[in-house]
Amino acid sequence: MKINITINNKAYEIVAEKEMPLLWAIRDFVGLTGTKFGCGVAQCGACSVLVNGKLTKSCSISLEEVIDKEILTIEGTSKNLEYLRKAWDDGNVPQCGYCQSGQLIAATALLNTIEKPTDKDIDTFMSANICRCGTYTRIRKAIHKAVSLKNEAI
């Protein structure tokens, strides 16, 4: 079936089974490989994207459910994502880097929801994302840093 979606402000027409999870359509058909596969069962957050602004695990949502919707992946940009990138850079967050696309997208959703998250907000929100390398304390710091970068810019 033909499916129209917008990814990072670009329109795509994908020909695929409507049951196919968004993750694999993005990776194997659209060719954007920044969104990662980690578990396939909504357990790790490596595949996180925003669908119409809502944090979504792309391994567990079908193409059919995202028809005509707008997707933001790690290859895209948004105000909060850019502050977070700077903060990630500043804190030298990644180790292997593999989970970081998902972490950054999840953190973007967090800042879109809560302007100035507390440690507790971060714990609640970010616990859906696994980092096997264990960069959690840096991610926590970097999220606070992104908030202060944003406030400085305003």
């Binding site: 969104t35 850079d89 880097g97």
Partner: peptide, 28 residues
């Protein structure tokens, strides 16, 4: 303190891991 030389690749999704390799005619 030195930052990773790969930071930008990691935060923009551009780093190519094994699973991201795409070559013409590739099957899975």
């Amino acid at each position: 303190k030195l930052k990773s030389v790969d930071l930008e690749a990691f935060t923009t999704g551009k780093a190519t891991y094994g699973i991201d390799v795409r070559i013409p005619g590739l099957k899975f």
